[in-house]
Amino acid sequence: MKTPRKLFFHAPNVHVGGGLNLLQAFYDAAQSSIDFEQLDVRAKACLKPGRAERHWVRPTLFSRLAAEWRLRHKVKPGDIVLCFHGLVPLFPLKGQVTVFLQNRILLSSDSLQSYPLKTRVRLWGERLMLRSFARRVEKFVVQTPSMAEQVRGFLGDKTPVVVCPFVLADVDQAETPVEKIYDFVYVASAEPHKNHQKLIAAWCLLAEQGLRPSLALTVPFDTALSFQIEELKRTWKLNLFNLGQLSPDGVCALYDQSSALIYPSTTESLGLPLIEANSRQLPIIAAELDYVRDIVEPVHTFDPTSRTSIARAVRRHLGSSEPTQAIHGPDVFLREIMQ
């Protein structure tokens, strides 16, 4: 008699942000099918009890290695292993391995200089691990066509990639209209690729031009970025409101209180706030990048590396576009030189 296939769910280091939201959505749907699971201990309060054999993985090298070794010994031929954390198993496994890739940074050779040293070392190691062990994977699952293209560009044209996006079920909008408190909202954590620096620089430029639209942010408190936001807010008298990290219900309420979503992130595997805001009919002003147009049609776009471009997109949305530069003849240029 054939032994039934088991599903091994491996998700260390998935404990915050969009990754945690997707984990919760998947787990609610799949927990009755999971036979063995390894989860990040920092997500413990967010996950329901399941029927599977469960192991909590701590954010330490020893605990992560122990989890990899446990997989090595538990997985049998025919078993299915879903690596939800986006990395290839450290040791060869006897079962069928599927990797859910959510982190575009792992698929790029771009510089990591904007990240802290510890993070740079980790990301460099994870990139190397992905390249070195990709042949152990039966298939990679990604959320968008542009992400699939990037996987093949990084790992080779013959890499098996499946595009299968999924999100949390929609949360109902408020039954009664909610007062719009903020002109713009940006739901994002404090990682460098979220590009808060350029966004805030654009808000400073707008203030210099006499415009001070309100902007709500969700940067975790007690981070270097949160302190910088408060300092620039005071210096430029900006209408910035950092609300800190919010619960999913808190994020939904924030969308209802906002007139538009602005999204300057330089890299995303999906961009959940884009989907969430779009489902609530919020206008979207976003970076002109592939990941954005994979899933939404923004009303205005900008170059995310330019504070001027971001500021101009904001002005266009507010109906306050700046005049274009007048072009002169060589006689005017000569007069300028001779003054």
Rank of each mutant, 00 (worst) to 15 (best):
F241Y: 11
E68D: 15
G156C: 06
Q209Y: 06
R135L: 08
D28C: 15
L20M: 15
S258D: 06
G244T: 11
F36K: 04
V178L: 11
L87C: 06
P59I: 00
V219K: 01
F241D: 10
T176I: 06
Q96P: 01
A190M: 10
H300M: 03
L130A: 12
R127K: 10
L243Q: 07
K233W: 00
L90P: 09
K44L: 07
A188S: 08
G271F: 11
R212H: 03
R58K: 06
T176S: 05
R316F: 10
S309K: 06
F26P: 03
S258T: 08
Q38T: 01
S247V: 14
A134C: 12
Q31L: 10
A148L: 09
L123H: 12
L246A: 10
T308A: 01
L7C: 03
K233I: 00
E336A: 15
P248M: 01
D157G: 09
Q113R: 11
E175Q: 13
E126R: 15
Y186A: 03
G271M: 14
F154S: 12
V121M: 15
L82P: 01
A30I: 05
V292D: 01
A43R: 00
F26N: 15
I229R: 02
A190R: 15
H10S: 09
I34T: 04
R54K: 09
T98Y: 12
L334V: 15
Q24E: 09
D40I: 04
R152K: 15
Q281E: 12
P264V: 00
F227D: 04
Q228I: 05
D35H: 05
Q143T: 08
A67M: 09
R312L: 08
H55E: 06
T98F: 14
D35W: 00
R280P: 09
V137W: 00
V137I: 13
Q173T: 13
R280G: 13
L334I: 11
K194Q: 09
Q245N: 11
P160R: 07
